[in-house]
Amino acid sequence: MEKKRVALFSLTDCQGCEFVVLQLGEKLLEVAKEVDFANFRLASSKKEDGPFFISFVDGAVTSSEEVEHLKWIRSNSKYLVALGSCATIGGVNALKNYFTNVNFPKEVYSRDFESFEAKPLSEYVKVDVLIPGCPINLEEFAFVLKALLEDKVPKLKLAPVCEDCKKNGIECVTKKGMFCLGPYTIGGCGAPCPAAGVPCFGCRGPLFNPNVADAEKVLRDRFIHGGVLFTGLGWVLVKGESK
């Protein structure tokens, strides 16, 4: 059987999600029996053109060059997967959007260069699968890769992080008086933050039907007063403000 061609591309981000992929370790060699990594700049000097069976794209879109690149990737890929929060919701980069609204970069950087508001891939192209998280969870990546190689498009399960806490017997951090975004956030991460005694800050993005109007008021207040909120729901807030 011919190997399927898979590519990994990165836009504006820290590439942490690609490093998580490399945590497959020796399993990566198993995967490579079925898959030809045709384009994976972080790990390989191979630079091949499409078409790709699957393209994983991490990072947010912040320049017109990246928009063009992303469109090229889309037109050369059967499946396009947004890898990690920057690609699914703008990620930490979306904090910048808040400042762009007050024209901050120009004031601070005294040189004008192109840098759009940070947007997720889906603002520009059709995305087939979202793998949320800052960083992604390796099991989810492996699950999505396996399904797509079998030509099946997996669906993201929509349940809050609270389910992960319950399943793993993690004590609710709100009992300690912490403000936790777990109830509003897409779960499936295994709740590593509450497990480590830290509240969820919504890195995997909002559940599709949170009570945004209510949440937004609370969140905006939190953000302005210095709450972390840099990904997930923060993006809803920022997006709401910019439009």
């Binding site: 504006t12 930490v92 904090l95 910048k96 400042f99 901050f104 260069f113 210095g226």
Partner: peptide
């Protein structure tokens, strides 16, 4: 590499974050 303005993004954030 595209600049991400981290130093600017930190402005106004609480030190705990």
């Amino acid at each position: 590499e595209t600049p991400r303005f981290f130093e600017a993004m930190l402005k106004g954030r609480k030190i705990k974050d």
